[in-house]
Design a protein around this nucleic acid. Sequence first.
DNA 1: ACGAGGTCGCGTCAGTAAAG
DNA 2: CTTTACTGACGCGACCTCGT
Length: 348
Amino acid sequence: MSKCGRKKYFKTNLRQMTMETVESQQDGGVTNSVAESKSAHMQTQTGQNSVPTLAQVSVAGSGTGRGSPAVTLVQLPSGQTVHVRGVIQTPQPSVIQSPQIQTVQVATIAETDESAESEDVIDSHKRREILSRRPSYRKILNELSSDGPGVPKIEEEKSEEERTPPHIATMAVPTSIYQTSTGQYIAIAQGGTIQISNPGSDGVQGLQALTMTNSGAPPPGATIVQYAAQSADGTQQFFVPGSQVVVQAATGDMPTYQIRAPTTALPQGVVMAASPGSLHSPQQLAEEATRKRELRLMKNREAAKECRRRKKEYVKCLESRVAVLEVQNKKLIEELETLKDICSPKTD
DNA sequence: ACGAGGTCGCGTCAGTAAAG
DNA sequence: CTTTACTGACGCGACCTCGT
């Protein structure tokens, strides 16, 4: 299997998890399409086929929702029925529930045509369409968290800079010093002043000051940095998006600046090449387009990171729910066995 | 030591839904 | 209609494990 093929398969697994769960719930839990790793693991839990002995157990009352007493009607082999109060009195607030509900609805839509029993070939396109409309992980988990107390809420992971009040610029952290790849030092002072020093130079341009303002024009979370270069003919403005930290000056006629995450040393994208005056010439338009593209890529990069983080958290929640259900399942089986022993005394 | 296979994280693109 | 946020898919590189 090729590398990307493997990759694809692995990723598809996650995407299929929800759908397979639905299928197993819909038709009695006989979906065996994926027999690998996490998917298979999840399936065993969410399907009911791992508990053959429960076939004779029916739950009394249709309103078996959260909080209702878990009274179970156990039908014994002798035909006798017994009302049983369960070991697990109240269904625990599950780690994850609404995703299942959502996907059940989805599956119902997908299977409205009952005559198509042979639709093991659910149109893959349709499937993809359905799945692509699944709400975001953050939405799902936040819904859950409002649903029950046991569910961790996905917050926007507030990094230190994000925890600062919105009017405080990202760079207004206690003085931080970065060294650029060109050897320059960038110091970010408390007041939002950025100082760029060139230790290697003979002192002619030893310090350059950047001041930051937060007037309304930029999008929230962004800071306008006014760059007052000594040799520049005018002040330049460019955005520094909230989650990023700064600026890397490069040598040359057209100094360029790069955004860097404070914790990584990797340059993350050129933000702007300083270009004086208005944007009218084709070259300037091209630069503007490039700048926009870089900005978009940078945002998307961040979004992708965040998305992956949420996804991981989502998967973790699913896994912990699996654990909870496993325990419940085990207890129910034990309970059933106990009841069987009690209610069918040995005749010999 | 070396190669193959597996896993993980990243950056990017493309498509979609929601917001403005 | 445009912009923005989100996420699946893809390709890539890094790292690890295992068999030879």
